[in-house]
Amino acid sequence: MSCWQTIQDYAFRSIGYGERLLPRSDFTLCEQFTLIGSGLIWNIYFGACALALGFFLATLVAMGKASDRPWIRRPADWFIFVFRGSPLFIQFFLAYFFFIQLKSVSGFFDPFTSAWAGALVVLFFNTSAYAGEIFYGALRSVPKGDLEAADAYGLAGWTKFRRVTWPTMLRLAWPSYTNEAIFLFHATTLVFFAGFPAFQQRGDALYYANYFATKTFNPFIPYPIVAFYFILLTLAVIMGFGLVNRRLNRHLAPQQRPKLKYRPQLIR
């Protein structure tokens, strides 16, 4: 089988298109690159959806933590504390057990016992907590001069927040939020180790890497392939967030615009 035929057969296998059976022996480098790349689709799905949904919840959590009303501030504080204070892997485990119990009560929760929905919920809440703390710090760092200028122009309430507070908060938080986005995509590999099952052997990148490592007893080929794909994914995230950062700072002179720099988070 040629490499092109392998790509046609397995490029989208992780989402249900192509060959149903995995190769059993005589694994080629092309098969490993193709199948692991196919599984990366799920990692991108987890990361992109969790970021897109978590961005809005993180904004609400940051606003809640900055509120003067205790009945709003304390739930936001506890939400951030719980999801930042507990390991992500334990959150996966507890969520799977919780959804299993709810499934026995109502069939509505049946999809949440699978990785595509249940693991996404965990990642959504986790990144919302981390991003919420980032946005809260940026919200507290908004220059008072900007707020006073908004008051002088007669801006108040939602208009003031939408036109002054929120854009300034995003500009201040964006570099740190970019690092959180990168870490989130890396954290999607933990879905493989969680209790959420992959549907019909349609797993993520680490699922296929583990399959090849188990069959060949050689982890030094599939796992570096996973690392290679995630390095490319990280570069794509940096480029995408860099474009947004340029948009947020478009009012500044080119030499004054802050540039994004990737800083690996060795300890989170």
Score class of each variant (00 low, 15 high):
residue 199 F to L: 14
residue 190 L to H: 07
residue 176 S to C: 02
residue 168 T to L: 14
residue 97 F to S: 03
residue 91 Q to F: 04
residue 101 Q to R: 09
residue 223 Y to V: 09
residue 147 L to C: 08
residue 174 W to P: 02
residue 195 G to M: 03
residue 106 S to Q: 04
residue 194 A to P: 02
residue 173 A to M: 11
residue 182 I to H: 10
residue 160 K to D: 04
residue 114 S to K: 09
residue 97 F to D: 02
residue 137 G to I: 09
residue 146 D to Q: 13
residue 165 T to S: 09
residue 193 F to C: 00
residue 214 T to Y: 14
residue 173 A to W: 07
residue 201 Q to R: 05
residue 188 T to F: 05
residue 139 L to M: 15
residue 139 L to F: 12
residue 239 M to W: 15
residue 95 A to Q: 00
residue 238 I to V: 15
residue 220 F to Y: 14
residue 165 T to L: 15
residue 175 P to E: 13
residue 199 F to H: 11
residue 172 L to C: 01
residue 136 Y to W: 08
residue 237 V to S: 07
residue 135 F to C: 14
residue 177 Y to V: 03
residue 239 M to T: 05
residue 188 T to L: 00
residue 101 Q to E: 12
residue 106 S to D: 09
residue 221 I to P: 04
residue 93 F to S: 05
residue 187 A to H: 10
residue 157 G to Y: 09
residue 197 P to Q: 00
residue 234 T to Q: 11
residue 220 F to P: 01
residue 213 A to P: 09
residue 234 T to W: 07
residue 141 S to E: 14
residue 235 L to S: 14
residue 193 F to D: 04
residue 195 G to I: 07
residue 157 G to W: 07
residue 131 A to R: 12
residue 178 T to Y: 01
residue 160 K to I: 00
residue 214 T to Q: 14
residue 125 F to H: 01
residue 182 I to K: 06
residue 179 N to V: 08
residue 166 W to S: 05
residue 107 G to T: 11
residue 143 P to F: 10
residue 101 Q to F: 09
residue 111 P to V: 05
residue 106 S to Y: 02
residue 154 G to V: 13
residue 162 R to L: 08
residue 103 K to W: 10
residue 154 G to S: 13
residue 150 A to M: 08
residue 118 G to P: 13
residue 144 K to V: 13
residue 100 I to L: 14
residue 112 F to D: 11
residue 163 R to G: 06
residue 96 Y to G: 02
residue 124 F to Q: 07
residue 236 A to M: 12
residue 91 Q to V: 01
residue 155 L to A: 11
residue 119 A to P: 05
residue 120 L to N: 09
residue 162 R to Y: 00
residue 191 V to D: 02
residue 193 F to Q: 05
residue 228 F to G: 15
residue 98 F to K: 02
residue 155 L to C: 08
residue 99 F to K: 07
residue 170 L to N: 02
residue 127 T to K: 02
residue 237 V to M: 07
residue 171 R to V: 03
residue 117 A to L: 10
residue 102 L to W: 10
residue 236 A to Q: 10
residue 111 P to A: 01
residue 219 P to N: 03
residue 91 Q to G: 02
residue 224 P to H: 10
residue 231 I to G: 01
residue 197 P to Y: 06
residue 127 T to D: 00
residue 220 F to L: 14
residue 174 W to R: 08
residue 215 K to T: 04
residue 189 T to P: 04
residue 171 R to Q: 15
residue 220 F to E: 12
residue 181 A to F: 12
residue 231 I to Y: 04
residue 208 Y to M: 08
residue 231 I to Q: 01
residue 192 F to P: 02
residue 181 A to M: 12
residue 107 G to A: 14
residue 182 I to V: 15
residue 129 A to I: 05
residue 204 D to S: 11
residue 141 S to R: 03
residue 167 P to E: 06
residue 180 E to H: 06
residue 99 F to M: 11
residue 131 A to Q: 15
residue 151 D to P: 04
